[in-house]
Every structure is written in C-alpha cells, then in structure tokens.
Design a protein around this nucleic acid. Sequence first.
DNA 1: ATGAAAGCGCTAACAC
DNA 2: GTGTTAGCGCTTTCAT
Lengths: 360, 360
Amino acid sequence: MYNQATFVNEAGKIVIVKKKGKRPSIKDIASEAGVNISTVSHVLNKSKFVMDVTKKRVLDAVEKLGYRPNMVARSLRTKKSRAVGVIVPDIANPFFAQVIRGMEEVTRQRKYTLILACSFYNPRVERDQIDILMDHFIDGLIFFCGYDSPENVDFTQKNHFPVVVVDRYAENIETPWINVDNMLGTELAVDYLVRRGHREIGFVTFSHENQTTVRHRYEGFMRGLANNGIPCNPEYVIIENSGRLKELTESLSILKERFSSRKPPTAFVTMADIFAFALIRAFKDMGFRLPGDISVIGFGNDDMCDYVDPPLTSVFMPTDIMGKTAMELLIDQIEGREIERKQILLPLRIVERQSVVDRR
Amino acid sequence: MYNQATFVNEAGKIVIVKKKGKRPSIKDIASEAGVNISTVSHVLNKSKFVMDVTKKRVLDAVEKLGYRPNMVARSLRTKKSRAVGVIVPDIANPFFAQVIRGMEEVTRQRKYTLILACSFYNPRVERDQIDILMDHFIDGLIFFCGYDSPENVDFTQKNHFPVVVVDRYAENIETPWINVDNMLGTELAVDYLVRRGHREIGFVTFSHENQTTVRHRYEGFMRGLANNGIPCNPEYVIIENSGRLKELTESLSILKERFSSRKPPTAFVTMADIFAFALIRAFKDMGFRLPGDISVIGFGNDDMCDYVDPPLTSVFMPTDIMGKTAMELLIDQIEGREIERKQILLPLRIVERQSVVDRR
DNA sequence: ATGAAAGCGCTAACAC
DNA sequence: GTGTTAGCGCTTTCAT
C-alpha cells in the first residue's frame, strides 16, 4: 500500500502529504479528532446523527491526514465491495470494448470499481474467472456470452446474486438481460435489399451452433427472405468456422471458390461488418465492381464503415447505451432499487452509406 | 457472496454443492478436518511443514466443502491482494484493447486479477482512479499514458510501489517502462518512401503538445526527412486537434481544403492507421487515384489494413508482446523477482501492402 | 508437528 | 450524541 496521501489543491496541482510511515487508519482519525472510531465511522457513512461540531472535527482530521477508508477492511465487515465483475470473451473485439467503455463510465459515476475478466471464448475459463471474481467479494456480475453456457449464469442467479446478461437472451426469465434485437437487424437488412429490387441475397456468417447472437442473426435473415417470399438458396450462404472475428481466411477462400465460376447473388447480408469488409475485398480481387455488381450490407456500424470502398451501409448497434444500461441495471439491483424493466431489447436501425444500390 | 461451492468434475461437468447457508470459512475446514485453523492455513500456503496425513485431511475437507480462501480477509491481513490495476485512457481504442488482452492473459496465468480503470484522457480522472484502485489494495499498477502527467506516475513510484508504464517513456529513470520505438517507426516509414523515389512527403498527426507518443512519431518523421536531406514543407503537415481517435472531421476538411487547388505531396506518412484511412477517403473524394497519385503509409498495422482500398502498408506494433511483457514485468516486481531489464523499447517494422508505389 | 491467540481496519449492536 | 466492543476470515508469532 502507499504510505502517503495526495490531494488536488484549489490550483489544480497535486500535493503529496507524507504522513508517518503508513496510510492512516480510522484510529488515526479518531485520535486526531479526539473522538471514538465509531463516531468517525458514523460521520463517514452518515449512519447516525453526529453533532455538527464533532462532524467538522472529524472531517478536518480526514483532510489533514488524507484519510481514505480501507475498502478491504470495509468489505470484510460488510460483505460488500463496491466492485463489480465483467466477464467478456475477448476484450480486443471492438464491439465488446465499446460496450465496456459505456460500463466503465457508469461505474465511475456511481463510485464502483470494475474488475475485468476475459473468458477467451472458453466456458471453463469463464468458470474459473467467476470464482476469482467472487473471491474478491464483487457485488455483482455482468456476463457477455460468446457462446451458450447457461450453467455459469444460472448458478449465480439461483443465489440471488446480482447478475446482468449482455448480448444474449437468458433463458431463465428471472435473469435481467439487455440485448439488441439481432433477429430484427438482419430482417431489416433483407427488407432493405428487397426494397432496392434485390431477390438473390446471400449471407455470410459464423457457424452458429452455440452462439445465440449468431443464430438469431441467421434466423432474422431467413425470416426476412420468407417475409418477402424468397426461397433460400444454400449456395448463397457462407459459413466461417473459425469462430473468431478477424480470422476470416476461410470465408474469403470459400467466397472465391464458390463464385469464381458460378454467378453470385446480387446482394449480401453479413453477420458482422468485418465479413462485409472481407467480402468486398474478395469480390474486388475477383474482378467484380462494387456496389455496381454486388450490394452489401454489414452489421455493427463499425467506425471503419466510412473508410472502406464503397462506404458500408450497416445495421447500427447502440453499444454505448447497451453498456451504460447494463451497468445501471446491475448497480440498481445491487443497491436494492426497484427495477421497472429487467429485460431490455434495444431496437436497431440501418445506417445508409454507399454499398447498396438498386438492382439494375 | 454466493453461498455454494462449485466444481468441475472429471467429466467436465459443473457440479453445484449447496452447503449450509454461507460460503465456508477456514474455521469450517478446520472443524471438518479436526485440526486448528492455523494448520489449515499452513497447508494452503505451504508456509510450514505439515504431516502428510494431516495435510490430506485438510485437503479433503477443502474439496468436500468447496472451500476457497477469502481473498478480502487475506488481503486485510497481508496487505496483498493478487490484484493489479490497469489505467488506460480509452478502452475502446483498439490499440489499448489489444494490449490489455495480452495483459489479461498473463494475469490469468499467474493467478492475479485485473482491475481496469479508464482515465478518459483526463489527468484528474486518472488521479481519482488511482485512489480507488489503491483503496482496493492492488499490488501494482500499469499506466497507459494518453498524455504527459508525470505526477501520477511519480507519486506511486516514490513509494516503491510496483509500477510499469506503457506506451510512454517515463522520465524517471527508476520507473520500468515498455514501449515501441515510435521515433524509429516514422523514421523507417520516411526511409521506405524515399527508397521508393518520393521526396515530397506529408504527415498527418494529432496535435502533439502533451502526448509523448505523438511527439515522438512527429520527431521521427522530421528526422527521417533530415536523414535524407529533404526539407520539411509545413504545408504538407496536417494536424488534427480533436485529440480523440476517430473524430477526424477536422483533418478530413483540412486535407480537402488544402489540396483542392494546391498540388499535394506524392506520399504521406500518418500518425495512425485511422488517419491513413481517412486520408485515402479524402483524396478519393477529390478525384485522386490511389496509390497511383498518392502513396500512403500508416502506423499500427490495424486489422483493417487488409480491407481498405488500396490495402494499407503500415508500421507493425507488437501489441500482444507489449501487454504480456508489461504484465510480466509488473508481477515480477510485485513478487520481488530480479528483473534484468526494466526499460524495454520494442523494435518496429513495416508490413508491406499496396498503398505505396514507386514515384513515377 | 500442531494449537492458541492476537490483530489487520472497519461496522454495527449495544451501552451509557 | 458518543463510546465500547465483538467479530468479519485470515496470517503469523509464540507456545506446547
């Protein structure tokens, strides 16, 4: 621990105050202020009425010694830590990172601490990380689920431990979750393409065996086709098996192989923007012209959509709202506040750029 | 806290063991095993020799009750938490996110917990976040510095508190840091362009008043020019003032304004890939053809380099190594291991794609 | 080789 | 309105 206190004074400058050899404890404040430690505690926690004069003496001592309550001791006593855990499959995935930024903002505002853990898309690792987080007395937990693994969510839920699930629908109706309407997203995308005259529509996606998000986007695509009376041509569906974003060698080669001789559809929907980026690259390499020959619509509305060629029309995901709302939901639960809606499905909308043109 | 223990049994299945109403403590283990709590402690920490039979009894009890030591109580006693803090300006910046992924991997391997805090590019916020982290008894701290703020680094350092600085050179020679050789990066880029016949070379960057990284890349650019006997043309230097990645409206408009009538240089170096992406967009909008009319070289080797048009030649940054090494360095310090090198400057290299062509 | 007990810094129930 | 004190779960010194 650090054995000094720091302040930012009125001039905005950081002042370091060396005090004895150690960080001051509640005892030091008590003797400095000439009161009992319980009085100090009550002043700090506003847990009992304390006379103004006494209160001032305590507060002055706090400032003088640069006292900050020891959260570890407090946690041990109260079984609360003002820390929340967030488990995410991969922090380097920009989608996750953006949602986490939203969360971080809320934890800061509400004076909590965010403990991050990565599952690396592995339920066993996730399990271990939960235990480690629990060891630190986190007050609540947010799951991002890269795959279906209800056990890990359920076990915490069953104990009335505050949990919020993000980016996946929890089957347990009691578990609060927040998600975007993935099915709607791809459905809208298909509708959009159909309105532009397209009827031969392809889809590029991950293998969706155990990822709810992927599966829903696939189902939305199929529903979009059905809504518009278009049969699905399996040759137009490209499935990448790697399961990891940005390892797209497979879909690139499948695309090139399949459509080097065969005629491609006039438009594609993709599971994620990155697939659309890769698709654009692949078809350009094959000598197609985009968007003239082939229209594409992405999913995620990544910042890069503006910078690829053609600029990518994409389904916008409100990552910031997702993160903030998830964290508010969690902290409200922790603090025992009434929550109006526990399951939140955020709507999606299409951001138009230039990658889709009317079918000629 | 959760009032049950969980295991993953030999079949890989998760088993939930309900135990009384609460998480078992060391006392429960002691009475279950018929020994004293101190013996349990010694078995768990290997802090004293304990007879094999006794040890087995303890370990059996631990498994039976699903005991996990309470890290909070342990922290209170030992002043160690096996938790490390990481402060980063913005988690949604892919560079930071990638480095953090490397760190996370090491914390997991070495059984530490990573507590994340964002400074949102604000030294005051950073200061607050440090205090919050310290309140939780973190054993060490990693700073990513989005700006120059030596006070915050120094105050921890002066207390012999384990610190590692990433992405910035600490002026204090005692502070361990790890960074890429930013100056070398832009220098290499200029050399590369010169070798391809270019002598009119532009630079797109952030304002670099108080960001070491930005400044170094700028200096590297200038040095590259000087090395090759090329005078710097200030009209070829574009400075974005926003200070935030991905808010590039300013540089886009400056570029368009400045080179709509005036002849642009034949090649550009950029401070970050995103500037190169924006630059490509801007010049294409103006009717230039790339890379024919203008060559560009980026910095960062973002995944997107493959998907823009032309694919972007860029300076590769070893983010993974950076993160892992930083965390190893920190934990080695925490655990009092001998560290051979405390200041590490990682070399950089250029990844060639198609955005640079020989000057015609 | 194992047990007993103090104490880390704090909160909260109870005493005055 | 303020003080006294037990105890959260653990490590560690000192006894035995």
